[in-house]
């Protein structure tokens, strides 16, 4: 695997967490392809082969709907995330895209000042390399724990 590809994945990951952590949610769907999939599930469900997700989107349009709901409909206390990612391990997929596995930890910072470890897990990604603009074709977030504190509003 050449270094250039490794750097492209690293760059996409960096842009992904920056977009979320800086609260630029409207730009988040642009990091996916038009028919990109985004799922959040638990390790328990994944290990047992159960298909349920906490969030299940099968298009960029669905991601944009989620962002609009977060902005306009849903009620949640002001909060921010800080993502810390491990190194991505990548391998080529059959169709020319890449598969990447990346560990993450997310701290949640509430408006009250409370900072706590909110989630840990694994990103299982398929990434399309389209010249300069690499995008997620598929991003599956596998949460290590089955338990969410209060709510999961902002995407992981």
């Amino acid at each position: 695997m050449d270094i250039e590809r490794q750097l492209k994945v690293q760059d996409l990951n960096a842009r992904y967490v920056e977009t979320i952590d800086e609260g630029r949610f409207e730009e988040w769907p642009d990091l996916f392809t038009d028919d990109g999939h985004y799922r959040v599930t638990t390790a328990e469900n994944a290990e047992e082969g159960l298909p349920l997700s906490l969030i299940h989107a099968t298009s960029r349009a669905m991601l944009r709907d989620r962002v609009r709901a977060l902005r306009e409909a849903n009620i949640y206390e002001a909060q921010r995330y800080r993502h810390i990612l491990g190194p991505a391990r990548i391998e080529p997929a059959m169709d020319g895209s890449l598969r990447a596995r990346t560990s993450f930890m997310v701290a949640r910072i509430m408006h009250t000042g409370e900072t706590a470890l909110f989630a840990t897990g694994l990103y299982l990604d398929r990434i399309a390399l389209e010249g300069e603009a690499s995008r997620f074709v598929e991003k599956t977030v596998i949460l290590d724990s089955r338990q969410i504190d209060t709510l999961l509003a902002i995407p992981l």
Binding site: A73, E77, L151
Partner: peptide, 16 residues
């Protein structure tokens, strides 16, 4: 299932 649970469009507020 997008509607329910801790990330549910119509149920995320209940816990809070």
């Amino acid at each position: 299932a997008n509607l329910i649970g801790p990330s549910g469009f119509i149920s995320m507020e209940d816990g809070a």
